[in-house]
Amino acid sequence: MIINHPLLGPRDASEFYYIGDAAMIMRPDAKPDDHSAETMAAFDSYQHHRDNPHGFHRELWYHEQGDRSWLIVTRNTTTHEITKVELARDVKLKGGL
């Protein structure tokens, strides 16, 4: 797979480290003493549950062997086709997914 890095151009996927669903940039937040059931469920879901879609998937790739930026790659999980690559920081600064 070739990932078209927004800054560095096309790079081989083996230069990257994969961590999974891009939803992980949207971590829930809570006050330190908040142990309510809703908060615990939100963190449980954030940590453990995945949409795991059959088709297009937005996912986090870390350019470990390159400029060490985090990318959000949109990739089809049935064909491995990559249709969009963004810098994760840009997505997050624009308000997230």
């Binding site: 797979m1 081989d12 996927a13 083996s14 994969y18 999974g20 669903d21 795991n52 059959h54 998937h57 996912e59 990739r75 999980t77 049935t78 064909t79 491995h80």
Partner: peptide, 12 residues
């Protein structure tokens, strides 16, 4: 190491 439903992988 990446999510996939394709019954084939990559060369690395």
């Amino acid at each position: 190491g990446y999510n996939s439903y394709a019954q084939r992988g990559n060369l690395p």
